[in-house]
Amino acid sequence: MHVPDGFLDAPTSIATGAVAVAGVGLALRGARRELDDRTAPMAGLVATFVFAAQMINFPVGAGTSGHLLGGALAAVLVGPWSAVLCISVVLLVQALLMADGGITALGTNVTLMALVGVWVGWGVFVLARRLLPRRTSMVVPAAAIGALVSVPAAATVFALLFAVGGIAPVDPGKVLAAMVTWHVVIGIGEAIVTGLVVASVVATRPDLVRGALPALEKRELEIRSPAR
């Protein structure tokens, strides 16, 4: 669910907009390193994939449903810079063509989901990858942990923004507690789905999983001779 117009006051919206512009600007340079001149078509198709993956709704209970955010998933699959671009473009298309998420809240949404979601997800993923044994199969739990942390992290940043620029006099501590508990639950679902999707790609095309590159480089050609 995206932040709509009017949830945060104008100065906060403009400030997060500036953060979003800077973050996406850096990602534009970084993505060229990850994808070189293939950036436009590849990031476009991956953004479309993220959008399609977000279309699948899961019943959360009490009549509401949640969907995948995909920040950590995209980061593990295509690398963090390209993931920031993909998620930002998804949010831009949703705001301009689908009226999902306010246009003045676009900066907030990009900051929360594209910058915090992707970078926290990627950071935790890299940390977990370093701690776990260097095998391609270990990319899966690392990706799940990244996804698990990224969702409450984005919720925490939202609660902080709400404390600074929220228009309602609600106790910031209460907002933080409610947001984080609720998003830990969502994060668990996100972690399971992210792990399962990464597992299925690692099983068939490990070369397409950017987060698996160090493990792949280490993998040696193995020649097995038939047993006699």
């Binding site: 991956v46 479309t48 699959l77 789905v193 399962l196 999707v197 990464v198 095309r205």
Partner: peptide, 15 residues
Amino acid sequence: ARAMGALFIRSYERG
């Protein structure tokens, strides 16, 4: 999730 993994591979290869 396997379907989504397949969708990612198809989208990436389409790209």
